[in-house]
């Protein structure tokens, strides 16, 4: 299980800063069509994992694409690593996983990574090693020579993660990274993000799968209707000062009844009680692991590995 690490290596250096961001999509005749973002303020610090949450159409992807310089803001101030987005120098320090896996369907996984490496100007001498490391990391070594168009959705997602990491960026912007991944993949993704965090990378993820976000993010913002509704650390946001939760080993019928009586006597309400259960995620992982160990074959993704060594420790940008 991925363990949530305290934000120990977070330093208060702003990596991404957004103030009063507004985005209006216009049609061909420049008439306003959709006001996707109204008033977005975000501050993301170096070395943290930041979650952008929100229901469908709340403007997560739009915000992300503005941060990448793919869309231009209609109003407001945006700076990434102290520069406006789309500045050439900062582009090589950012890795991006798009929301929908749009990669060349006719390229093989290896060719796709090679293309990304060329675009990001990875030195020829390092290229091959990095490609193999990343394929191993995402568990696609065996499928690396098949065309991406033949990949399953989750396999395409994995190749997407690999291409985002090929140039060892300082900032990773992952738009719904767990979208389409199997629970095993989801757990691997969480592990990779945790490992990236350990190496000092700043990670921005967007998602509406709250359980995933809860485990990996240091801080989150919740977007709705093109506005940031709440921002804060997970503990801050989730803490309730009017509830207490116990998890114990089985106390036995009698002790339980006794405890309940005691609690109710002092006028405190018992909101819920019941036998503990494991999560479906745990059960799923257990089953797949067992099948793997018994030597079942799959044409899908294999077991992923740890973050490769070339992903270096990031220094705090000044």
């Amino acid at each position: 299980m991925s363990v949530k690490v305290k934000p120990d290596n977070r330093q208060d250096v702003e990596v991404i800063r957004v103030r009063g961001l507004r985005k209006v999509f216009r049609d061909f005749w420049l008439r306003p069509r959709v006001e996707a973002l109204r008033e977005v303020d975000l501050t993301i610090y170096s070395g943290e994992v930041f979650g952008l949450l929100g229901p469908n159409g709340s403007g997560k992807s739009t915000t992300i694409q503005i941060l990448l310089g793919l869309l231009f803001p209609s109003a407001g101030e945006v700076s990434v690593l102290g520069k406006p987005p789309a500045t050439a120098e900062i582009k090589n320090r950012i890795g991006y996983l798009p929301e929908d896996s749009v990669f060349y369907p006719f390229l093989t996984g290896r060719e796709m990574l090679d293309l990304s490496a060329s675009l990001a100007k990875v030195a020829d001498s390092q290229r091959k090693g990095r490609i193999e490391d990343l394929l191993e990391m995402v568990g696609l070594q065996d499928a690396g020579d098949r065309e991406i168009g033949d990949y399953s959705k989750g396999m395409q997602r994995r190749i997407g993660i690999a291409q985002a990491l090929i140039h060892d960026p300082e900032i990773l912007i992952l738009d719904e990274p767990t979208n389409g991944l199997d629970p095993l993949g989801v757990r691997e993704m969480k592990d990779w993000i945790g490992a990236l965090r350990q190496r000092g990378k700043t990670v921005l993820i967007s998602s509406h799968l709250l359980a995933d976000v809860e485990q990996i993010c240091d801080r989150v913002s919740i977007l709705y209707g093109g506005k940031v509704q709440t921002t804060g650390s997970i503990e801050q946001i989730l803490a309730r000062d009017d509830r207490t939760l116990w998890v114990t080993s089985n106390p036995g019928e009698d002790l339980l009844a006794e405890a309940r009586r005691q609690i109710e006597k002092s006028g405190i309400e018992v909101v819920s009680m019941g036998p503990g259960s494991r999560s479906l995620e745990d059960k799923f992982l257990e089953t797949v692991e067992a099948a793997r160990e018994s030597g079942e074959k799959t044409t899908g993704a294999g077991i992923g590995a740890k973050l490769p060594a070339f992903i270096g420790q990031s220094k705090v940008p000044r």
Partner: peptide, 17 residues
Amino acid sequence: VTGRMRVLVVHRHGKSA
């Protein structure tokens, strides 16, 4: 149309190349 261009142009030399 596919939006695939995004993965190219986020790279430093993607847009000009």
